[in-house]
Each structure stands twice: as structure tokens, then as C-alpha cells.
């Protein structure tokens, strides 16, 4: 062991590094689960601002709506939607793993792809629905 340590000063394997790993879909889904979790943590401010503005009054609510319907606000909201759907779908994947289901590499790869697909298609579907349906006209019987 002592001789090994002495002679491997430059040849010993270095610890894995993010930049030299070949990216895999399972690795990406794991990292993005945490990243979307952190993003949604900040996103809770949006939900709270929305509730507080609705509670506070007409003026503040109109101002928030104006900001959220601006191009910048739209980008934030689309990102928020995708993050919610990704974290939701990948969270279900985690719950199955907790139950010991879906742990094989083949299944884990497949479900990782499905989560990305679902988050993206779901975001598109929600925004298509939101932008093509008139909220004011629907509100009468929306419950």
C-alpha cells in the first residue's frame, strides 16, 4: 500500500468530475429534480404574491397580472409550469422507487425519458388551453 501510494502520485484515478462525466438521461433527471425543486421554492413567492394580491385589492391584482402577462412574466410562468410538471412526474418516479418498483436500469432510463416528455407536452397543453380559452367567459360555470 505504501509503495502504491508513492508511485501513483500522478497516475491514480482522480475523483469523478461533473465536466468529464458522459451525461445520461437518468443523471440529468436526478439533477433537474433538485434544480426544479429549488426553482419551485422560489416559485412559492409567485403563488403567495398571487393570493396576497387577490386578497389585498383590485389595483395590486391588476398590476401583478400586467407584470405576469409581459414577455418576461410569460417566460417565468412557462418555466414555472415546466418545473411543476417535471417535479410532479419525477416525484411519482421517486415514490415508485421507494416502493421498490422501477429500479432496473432499463426501466429507469425509460421513465426518465417519459418524465421529460410529459413535462414538455404537459406545459404545451396547459398553455394552449390557457391561451385559447377565455377565462372571463368561462367563469360562470367553471366550478
Amino acid at each position: 500500500m505504501a509503495t502504491a501510494q508513492k508511485s501513483t502520485k500522478f497516475t491514480q484515478p482522480l475523483s469523478p468530475h461533473l465536466q468529464i462525466w458522459r451525461w445520461t438521461i437518468t443523471m440529468a433527471s436526478s439533477i433537474i429534480h433538485r434544480a426544479t425543486g429549488a426553482a419551485l421554492y422560489m416559485g412559492s413567492l409567485l403563488i403567495t404574491a398571487w393570493l396576497a394580491a387577490a386578497a389585498y385589492g383590485e389595483g395590486l391584482y391588476a398590476q401583478l397580472t400586467l407584470w405576469l402577462t409581459s414577455p418576461f412574466g410569460r417566460i417565468i410562468l412557462v418555466g414555472f409550469t415546466w418545473s411543476v410538471l417535471f417535479h410532479l412526474a419525477n416525484g411519482v418516479r421517486h415514490l415508485f422507487w421507494d416502493a421498490g418498483v422501477g429500479l432496473s436500469l432499463k426501466t429507469a432510463r425509460l421513465t426518465a425519458w417519459l418524465v421529460f416528455l410529459l413535462a414538455t407536452l404537459g406545459t404545451a397543453a396547459l398553455w394552449w388551453f390557457a391561451l385559447t380559452h377565455d377565462v372571463a367567459a368561462m367563469s360562470g360555470g367553471a366550478h
Binding site: 398571487w50 393570493l51 394580491a53 387577490a54 391588476a62 397580472t65 411543476v84 410532479l88 388551453f129 367563469s139
Partner: peptide, 24 residues
């Protein structure tokens, strides 16, 4: 609950405060 919220949001926001207020 999140699925319920997403449905609620797309059917109630974007309009007046009154719509959201009545829903909430």
C-alpha cells in the same frame, strides 16, 4: 392537489380579480 391547482389556475387566472376572488 397540484393537478387540481393547475386546472383551477388555467380556468380562473388571466381575467379580473373578481373571477379569482369568487373562486378562492
Amino acid at each position: 392537489l397540484i393537478i387540481w391547482l393547475l386546472y383551477g389556475l388555467v380556468t380562473h387566472i388571466g381575467g379580473d380579480r373578481a373571477v379569482v376572488y369568487a373562486w378562492l
